[in-house]
C-alpha cells in the first residue's frame, strides 16, 4: 500500500515538473515574440511601432493666425513601452525664401504599449509680410508642418502636413 502511494506521488511530481518545464519553454519561446513583431505588414511594409495621427478635421480648422491649436495623437502600437517620446514640430511657409520658420518641442513620458496620448501644440501660423514677392508665385500659398517623434530606443516617425492657408 505504501509503495503504491509512493509510486503515485512520484509519477504525479514527475508529470507536474515536466509540464511546468514545457510551460516555461512555451512562454519563453513563443509568447513575447508575437508581441514584439511589427504589426501586420500593409502592402509589404511593417506597421510602425510609433504613430502620429493628424486628424483632417483638426487640420481644417487651422487658420493663418497666432495661437492655433494643433492636436495630434501619439500612438504606441508596438510591444514595448517607450520611456520618452520627443516631439519636434517645425512650421514653415511653403515659400522657401521666407525665413520665418517656427520650432516647437514637447516630451511625452512613459508611453506604454498600446497606449495613445493626445498632444496639444499652440502654433503661430500668422503670415509675415514678404519683403519682395516671389516671381510668378502660384495663386495659393501653403504652410508646412513637419512633426517628428523619436524615442531613446531609436524608434522614430515623421509626418508632414501641407496646409493650403
Amino acid at each position: 500500500m505504501r509503495d503504491a502511494t509512493l509510486w503515485a506521488a512520484g509519477a504525479a511530481l514527475a508529470f507536474l515538473l515536466t509540464a511546468g518545464a514545457f510551460l516555461v519553454l512555451a512562454n519563453l519561446a513563443t509568447g513575447p515574440a508575437t508581441e514584439d513583431l511589427p504589426a501586420t505588414p500593409a502592402r509589404g511594409k511593417p506597421g510602425p511601432p510609433l504613430d502620429l495621427d493628424l486628424n483632417r478635421d483638426r487640420l481644417d480648422s487651422l487658420k493663418p493666425a497666432p495661437d492655433q491649436e494643433l492636436l495630434l495623437t501619439v500612438e504606441n502600437s508596438g510591444g514595448r513601452d517607450f520611456s520618452n517620446v520627443n516631439l519636434t514640430l517645425e512650421a514653415s511657409s511653403g515659400d522657401t525664401a521666407n525665413p520665418n520658420a517656427r520650432y516647437y518641442r514637447q516630451t511625452l513620458r512613459n508611453l506604454k504599449s498600446g497606449e495613445d496620448v493626445e498632444v496639444r501644440f499652440l502654433l503661430d501660423l500668422s503670415k509675415t509680410a514678404e519683403a519682395s514677392p516671389p516671381p510668378t508665385a502660384p495663386d495659393e500659398t501653403s504652410e508646412i508642418i513637419e512633426i517628428r517623434a523619436t524615442t531613446p530606443e531609436g524608434v522614430s516617425v515623421v509626418r508632414t502636413a501641407i496646409l493650403p492657408l
Binding site: R56, D60, E140, R148, T160, I162
Partner: peptide
C-alpha cells in the same frame, strides 16, 4: 492640388 490639407509620411524635403 485638392485644396485640402494633406498629410504625408515623409519629411517635407523628401516630398
Amino acid at each position: 492640388s485638392s485644396g485640402e490639407p494633406e498629410v504625408r509620411a515623409a519629411t517635407a524635403e523628401e516630398l
